[in-house]
């Protein structure tokens, strides 16, 4: 396929992040700007300091919680268009976490889509990924290697449940590291299929669980972990990765540790991080899903960002797509 030359450079890479000159806005900017469009509320995408934020309706609560309620936010429902400068913009579900969005931009008849982080797997805690036809697709590639293939959430959640029960039998607690936003809620939803025993939460997780509940996402019963003392045993406790091994976790009796993350697909990652157990649960697209999405959106030009950019773009080219890495300033994400 001959290289596709986008008619207008709708997006350029700047030191502050992805910039759209025709609409004078940034997407997930790295530092404070006048106008920021936010794909989702994770802290490496939604950063403070901007004058005005355009965000999805469903992410308002979380973003206010993280960036402060005083900021100026304009919310948009999925698929509803609005205009900035010469650009017609709409947010579409990315299936990553509650309120996560792909951003569609149309200008002079050419359509660009920035995927943000996304996944194609079943996740009833947020709106499912929508295929948005486009000319230019900017895709993430956090797990852009063929070794990253996810099992179903049910299978891994069952493994978490069995691990919890096994630890319970020997009088131990199960401390599961889960990213506080998105991963925790997904696991809490899936666990309801196996038990109705309440799960204990770290404070940081609790806040976000409450925000999900406010939006009507059904989750298994939970309780703040701090209500319990050293003598509790056999409990499942969800906490952000940083909290495990900290003074907070030493308040509890003996426990085994686990980590729910796509990185746990590789044994070395689990051993390096010294978790006893790894559960492969990711809110990012796995290798087959990345290829599927590129195929389905029908883009003539693919830019690959955020992850295994070189490898995914090279393989896409070998499949006949026109793809290249888009160098951005995102830090390497640790918590897939």
């Amino acid at each position: 396929m001959s290289p596709y030359q986008p008619r207008i450079p709708l997006i350029s890479v700047t030191p502050r992040g992805l910039y759209c000159p025709r609409g004078d806005f940034y997407i997930d900017p790295w530092e404070g700007v006048d106008t920021a469009l936010i794909t989702h509320a994770h802290s490496d995408h939604a950063r403070e300091g901007s004058q005005l934020y355009h965000i999805s309706e469903q992410s308002l609560g979380i973003i206010q919680r993280r960036l402060g309620a005083e900021g100026q936010y304009i919310t948009h429902s999925y698929s509803q268009s609005f205009t900035l400068g010469d650009v017609l913009i709409s947010f579409h579900p990315a299936g990553h976490i509650l309120g996560s969005a792909q951003i569609r931009m149309e200008c002079e008849g050419e359509v660009w889509v920035v995927s943000g982080d996304y996944k194609r797997d079943y996740d009833p805690t947020c709106a499912a990924f929508e295929v948005v036809p486009c000319d230019v697709f900017i895709t993430e590639s956090t797990f852009g290697l063929p070794i990253f293939v996810w099992k179903g959430i049910e299978e891994e959640t069952e493994a978490i449940y069995r691990w919890w029960k096994k630890n319970q039998e020997v009088g131990k607690n199960s401390m599961l590291a889960c990213y506080a936003l998105g991963k925790s809620q997904r696991v809490l939803h899936a666990l309801a299929a196996f038990t109705d025993q309440p799960v204990l939460l770290h404070g940081a997780t609790q806040v976000l669980v409450d925000l999900y509940r406010e939006q009507g996402v059904p989750l298994i019963a939970t309780q703040p972990a701090t209500d319990y003392g050293k003598d509790m045993t056999g409990q499942l406790i969800l906490a952000p990765p940083g909290a495990i091994g900290s003074t907070w976790s030493r308040k509890f009796g003996p426990y085994e540790t686990g980590f729910a993350s796509g990185w746990m697909r590789i044994r070395g990652n689990r051993r390096r991080k010294a978790y006893d157990q790894g559960f492969v649960i990711s809110d990012h697209a796995d290798w087959p899903a990345l290829l599927q999405t590129v195929r389905e959106c029908g883009a003539k030009k693919i830019y690959v960002t955020h992850g295994y950019t070189d490898d995914l773009s090279r393989f896409l080219c070998e499949l006949g797509h026109d793809a290249e890495p888009l160098e951005t300033l995102f830090a390497r994400e640790e918590d897939g």
Binding site: L145, P146, I266, D311, F315, E318
Partner: peptide, 13 residues
């Protein structure tokens, strides 16, 4: 392809 196997191997170790 070979190169993608090698990249995978590098990532897994």
């Amino acid at each position: 392809p070979d190169w993608l196997f090698e990249q995978s191997y590098t990532a897994v170790g």
